[in-house]
Design a protein around this nucleic acid. Structure first.
Lengths: 247, 247
DNA sequence: CTCCATGTTGGATCGATGCTCCAACGGATG
DNA sequence: CATCCGTTGGAGCATCGATCCAACATGGAG
């Protein structure tokens, strides 16, 4: 209340102030380097040279910390879009860019896929989902679809993106995993061919395609599939009446 | 038998055989009634009147048990399709039926959404994913799309379904939650209208649609959107060559 | 029928985790 | 200098997944 400049900068007044931001930052580091199971309160106290009580003073929960870490990474992935100052390309390109930003973030952070899915179910309209929705919905609006279907259209895209990224977790990323990935795909493809022909005829039929598919390319193909459906069901009006209020 | 009273305290040991199937069954019961956090090894030993060692003799892992429970529920949801002996309706109807089967299963089992997402990330080609893929891919094949895009097309549908069901977890289900649901939507819609206009213009614009949307209807709309994209990009050939071997 | 061999059971026990509780610290205020 | 309160660090608690092992039951060999 009426605090003047008393709240001085967070310089090395103490060794280094423990702030919520710093905790989240360290959590992301731990997640990236050691994996999700290694993100424990004790690991945090070790890295930050503090106690568990200090940590719980800034974050109320472990789930809350995971949500904050997820939101931080997602915000960074959506902010650093390929130098595109404003809506330069088509709305379709913008949607592809946002989707690819999330896709690449998931491949860079192996823990992110599980967390995105977890946040979606635990807190369906939390900050993470909100952020993604906003970034997809904005180009959807400029796509020329009627306002009545903005919500549904955006939902379809977001749900596909999150479902697709959920499955594309650990595969790519490390460059040396080229052979490793080929072996994984080969093993899976072979396993599909050995399935019961009565129970799984389809999986056997696409075993070959599976071995040679590219996750990223397939991801984009799915986006284009949905975009085609959108523009087919709601073709952009050639001349848009400007004085058209809602409804 | 003439066993003396030397040590007959636990004579009723074999009153009911402990099998993996029974453990999974009990796990589903616990998940449905008390929730996911209540599914502990100790809760299982209590319900089954046994010890933890006996349980770990049949299941190797807690994650494995969760996967088995998920697969059991999914298999049941996909098997009990509305009395449709064979492919009676159009491929589109079949896809809608499979998707709705999963959607309804998620609403009936509040824990299922999180588990479906978890299985997708942890074990991308485990039995659960395999089963869903097969049930979606089969009608996709009869849709008339070229074989080269079977895998990609099915992936798009499955990823959307899993992403959408992931967000539709706790909302509907209980009939008495009618007012509760309305209040939840109203609260969320109001929260969106209070967002920063600079950061979240889109969410503010669709706050009204959000309050009055129906999850199930929106889910089906998304399916139709993707189906439209599929049939637009790959129109069914009027005459299909039958002697088309794989290659 | 007797008696092991083998597969199965039940529970004690271990290590680890999330979280709470509390004494102590230290900069700001008077 | 004295006091206060936001903040810190760590001991401790409850609980969990998982392991280990002695006690059992059952089928087949003798």
């Amino acid at each position: 209340m009426a605090g003047m400049a008393t709240r001085t900068r967070q310089s090395q007044r103490r060794r280094q102030v423990l702030t919520r931001e710093r905790i989240v930052e360290t959590a992301v580091e731990l997640l990236d380097t050691v994996g999700k199971d290694a993100l424990t309160v004790r690991a945090l106290t070790g890295r930050l040279a503090t106690g568990s009580g200090a940590i719980y003073w800034h974050i109320g929960n472990m789930d809350e910390l995971l949500e904050a870490a997820t939101d931080a990474v997602v915000a960074d992935a959506l902010a650093t879009r390929p130098t595109r100052p404003a809506g330069a390309g088509s709305p379709q390109d913008e949607i592809r860019a946002v989707a690819l930003g999330l896709f690449d973030a998931v491949t860079e952070h192996p823990w992110l896929a599980a967390q995105l899915a977890a946040q979606l179910t635990r807190n369906p309209w939390g900050p993470v989902t909100l952020r993604i929705f906003e970034n997809i919905g904005r180009p959807v609006r400029t796509l020329g679809v009627p306002q009545g279907v903005w919500f549904t259209t955006t939902s379809t895209l977001v749900h596909y993106i999150l479902g697709a990224t959920a499955q594309t977790s650990q595969s790519t990323g490390v460059p040396s995993s080229e052979a490793e990935r080929a072996e994984f795909l080969g093993t899976a493809s072979r396993a599909w061919q050995d399935l019961d022909p009565d129970d799984y005829p389809f999986m056997r039929a696409i075993a070959d395609q599976m071995r040679e598919h590219d996750d990223r390319e397939q991801f984009l193909t799915g986006i284009d599939l949905i975009l085609t459906g959108i523009t087919t069901l709601h073709p952009p009006e050639p001349a848009r009446r400007s004085g058209e209020g809602g409804l």
